[in-house]
């Protein structure tokens, strides 16, 4: 019989976290089927390893061969990992996949992860995330001042620059905190995962997105474990990861559409809002300032940010004359 290669994988998510947790399982299934059982991947969820935000370390040390997580979680360890999930005012999903696979993104990501004996691959996309649930309407920049919002990471830094107060709340206490006005707003994902959190019952305003236009999850692979695989299994593994990522993007899109319909049915009063122009401009400027600071500190950061900016500039022109133009023209027909 042929040798069976067994890999272990740790995921950030708990055992039945929908969509995010489906992606690695889908990947493992595809890999096993394509290899006719020669490549088996065993997935441990956070309930087992208890280290949702320790995947980087676990895969790096070889405790696990692979991980499924999101690159921006490692920002505190390796600042340049921030740029491979999504960026405020950045690319949308098709543009970002273009950058990864054809615009030099994968090479830059490898450059960041290589010193740690790790390989990183796209791991599934949520699509455009919503801006979050707000208890009160945001009309002016003053409304943002002192706004207590659960918004972690880089986007939180952007809002902090505008005078908002990013706040840490344990995820188990989020619902109660928002319900009782301990915080004024929070961001989660989008309808696909927000529905079950129940935020639509307690916050009337659902703002459209600006800060996570294309959240890409991540497969991490320990380089030594990768090198032990024969070439054909390496190819099968990377193809499975790519396919599972694409599948997750579709699944997210579908679930968001479904769940949004459910939310609207149950709570027709949800008010979908977009931040006013001047607020978006201020956010974008704050975002740019932060990026400029990072770029000035580290040449690799600058290289990544320049590459993203250049790619987006090119791709957006196409997006505008294709998807945007199509939607605009079709919408005008509906009226």
């Amino acid at each position: 019989a042929e040798k069976v290669y067994k890999l272990t994988m740790a995921e950030t998510w708990s055992s039945n976290f929908p969509i995010f947790g489906d992606a690695p399982r889908n990947m493992a299934r595809i890999a096993e089927e394509m290899s006719a059982g020669r490549l088996k991947i065993n997935i441990d969820s956070a309930n087992k390893h208890k280290a949702p935000l320790g995947i980087f370390d676990l895969v790096r040390s070889g405790q696990y061969d692979m991980g499924h997580s999101a690159s921006y979680y490692w920002k505190g360890k390796v600042p340049n990992t921030l740029y491979f999930t999504t960026m405020p005012f950045g690319m949308i999903t098709p543009e970002q996949y273009g950058w990864f696979y054809h615009g030099g993104g994968m090479e830059l990501m490898q450059k960041v992860y290589e010193p740690f004996g790790l390989m990183s691959f796209p791991g599934g996309n949520t699509g455009n995330q919503m801006g979050g649930w707000f208890k009160k309407e945001i009309n002016t920049l003053d409304d943002l001042k002192g706004l207590k919002m659960r918004i972690p990471g880089f986007a939180g830094e952007v809002l902090a620059k505008l005078g908002a107060n990013p706040t840490n709340i344990a995820s188990g206490e989020l619902y109660t905190a928002l319900e009782r006005n301990t915080i004024d707003a929070l961001e989660w994902v989008g309808p696909s995962l927000d529905l079950r959190m129940g935020f639509h019952k307690i916050a009337p305003y659902y703002y459209t997105g600006w800060h996570e236009p294309a959240t890409e999850l991540q497969f991490l692979v320990n380089k030594r474990a990768w090198d032990k695989l024969p070439a054909d299994l390496q190819q099968i593994l990377s193809t499975s990861m790519k396919l599972a990522s694409y599948d997750m993007y579709i699944q997210s899109y579908h679930e968001s559409a479904e769940n949004w319909a459910t939310m609207q049915q149950e709570y027709p009063d949800i008010k979908v809002k977009t931040f006013p122009q001047d607020i978006l401009v201020a956010m974008k400027n704050a975002n740019q300032e932060l990026l400029d600071e990072s770029a000035a500190k580290d040449p690799l950061a600058k290289e990544i940010l320049d590459s993203q900016a250049a790619y987006m500039k090119k791709a957006r022109v196409w997006t505008n004359i294709s998807d945007r133009a199509y939607l605009d023209s079709v919408d005008s027909l509906a009226e």
Partner: peptide
């Protein structure tokens, strides 16, 4: 490991 990476909080 944390010392070698100069790990900090990921939050603002």
């Amino acid at each position: 490991e944390s010392y070698a990476l100069g790990e900090t909080s990921g939050d603002p």
